[in-house]
Design a protein around this nucleic acid. Structure first.
Lengths: 203, 203
DNA sequence: GTCTATATTGCGATAGAC
DNA sequence: GTCTATCGCAATATAGAC
């Protein structure tokens, strides 16, 4: 951090602060002070506060490219779904601020939603939808499923776990030590449901 | 709106604007102009911008009290879960801005998170957890289920559908006309899973 | 109750010295 | 590249007239 790389220092500090309080909740004064850098450096490196914010967004959302790797994998749809869940959870561990930008942009979009956030989310979701469709085609998944809704249900289940953590941390342990258990549990609910015995009729 | 009730007019306008751009994204100048009221009325009625915001929050989150009605209902756990899904979806229809405050506060909490948002979410979630527990006790749900994770999965599935709508509206129809289909579909996924046949072993 | 006018503070951006 | 000093503007809040 004190390695003279002021640009990197600004990105790092901004990533923390913007995640906590949003684009409008942080002033470049506070930000530059926290980064140990002069306020004018933000204009110098990023052409202003919004430029810094967009650089943070781009860095954060670049990890969504990994979905392409899952798509290209030579494996069965169910295994791809497990890999998606595993990757989603690990993504929240590796990028602890990403979900904040994610949902902050979904609820209070900035001008960068359309050029950075939306394309990343849309591509990831379409890959997930295609995995569901493949499973239906291969008769491994029930053919009554609506692929779009099903993919959203899957994504929602995993993401909401982390999204709600601020409200649940008093009574739910969200530490990484439970991640493997969580993966098995969510795979189990998503594939087999919660009922102790199969219902008589479909849908 | 033009019925001289400036207080109500301010609440209504604020509900729209704060939902769209967050507490820090809206100025009281813009807000009072949009409401057709003088800027000083905000201090007069709400003791400032934050007071107005907290009034909006309280109004929005009051609808969570309905969860108590579901809890007190004399019906089976599975029916309560369906009622929860139905209420959740209808809640998003009746209070189209609520989810914005909900997730905005979860990701960028204001000082009102702890006193308004968190208690409402926590109570609703605990009721959902108790419904799952009751289902397990009555042997209607599988006893391997972790009630907390299961309740979160349920809540996440439904809420994420609306949360992600800004990113999905181009290819998913989120109009109310599909709500009944969605309810059946999510009940189906949650209770029976996605597999075309039961897996051999539990968990 | 409602307004206009204003006090005061903090904002983002940048000119210019080094 | 980096800093300090400052400009111009917009923010919230409020005093005081009506």
């Amino acid at each position: 951090m004190d390695k003279k790389d002021f640009r990197a220092s600004l990105i790092l500090t901004a990533t923390h602060l913007f995640a906590e309080r949003g684009l409008n909740g942080v002033s470049i004064r506070e930000l530059s002070t926290a980064a140990g850098v002069s306020i004018s450096m933000i204009s110098y490196y990023f052409e202003g506060k919004e430029g810094l914010y967009s650089s943070v967004l781009e860095e954060q959302f670049s990890c969504f490219e990994y979905m392409q790797t899952i798509k290209d994998r030579e494996s069965e749809p169910l295994d791809k779904i497990e890999e998606y869940i595993r990757w989603s959870i690990q993504r929240n561990r590796d990028y602890p601020h990403l979900l904040r930008y994610y949902t902050s942009e979904l609820t209070n979009p900035t001008r960068y939603f359309g050029i950075i956030v939306q394309p990343a989310l849309e591509k990831a979701l379409h890959i997930l939808i295609d995995i569901i469709k493949e499973g239906i085609t291969k008769k491994q998944f029930r053919d009554e499923l609506n692929p779009e809704d099903t993919a959203l249900a899957m994504a929602g289940m995993v993401n909401y776990y982390f999204l709600s953590s601020l409200a649940t941390q008093k009574f739910i342990n969200i530490l990484p030590e439970r991640d493997e258990e969580l993966i098995r549990h969510y795979m189990d609910i998503f594939t087999r449901g919660i009922l102790s015995q199969a219902l008589p009729a479909p849908l």
